[in-house]
Amino acid sequence: MSLAIHCQNIVKTYTTDGQQVVALNGVDLDIALGELMMLVGPSGCGKTTLISIIAGILNQDSGRCELFGEDFQSMSNKDQLRFRAVNIGFVFQAYNLLPSLNAAENVSVPLIINGMKRSVAERKAKDVLAQVGLGERTQSLPAQLSGGQQQRVAIARALVHSPRLIVCDEPTSALDHKSGHNVMELLKQVAVQHDRVLVIVTHDARIFSFADRIAEMDDGHIVKISNQTSHHLDR
């Protein structure tokens, strides 16, 4: 199985109120194509910092992080943006849909950033919305949709440009059990592919069963990596 993400000895520190806080302290992590990896751990353990570095929206202080064999730090800013635009899809805890755009327009944004004409992009967006079960709500504004529906739109937006990495930050934490389960079912069904990798940051133990592997983090380290079955056994 080929490697999608290779992180080696990643260190990241922040300065808060004049004090240095070590967010990541020598993190090593490899994730293979086709894998659904979950990052779990207590608040402040460095999960979000790690996915930000993996997704190229934050630079590490030291260490090496390669995504599909490319190192963000060796790219120009312009190439980083393009690489991100093409290869990465995001699903956020707070959905982060643009409130004044309807569902189809929201989903079409990554395609427009990637250079597709608006009319073509919206057509494509409607197809993907139909795949996530929102074919009838393409003209609805985010405020007119339930939390679960908004997260479906966010998933459609993350998938529409067929990225090779999908990064999800607490995708179910704002949803009730049933909606969260449905969202994970959907992700598993439409997002997991042999040539794509999903990294999900979560606190939500109810969805651990969807993971292929689970990396537990604490205090800026990965303390344990287990496959889904063994994690269940540990629990």
């Binding site: 490319e70 290869n87 004409k117 608006r118 440009h161 067929s162």
Partner: peptide
Amino acid sequence: NGIVYTLDSDENIATQSRTTIHREPQ
């Protein structure tokens, strides 16, 4: 690095494949 969308004459997406080509943002 990225995806290529191959468009037919009506700008429909005919095929998608990953390659090393990307178009300028609209």
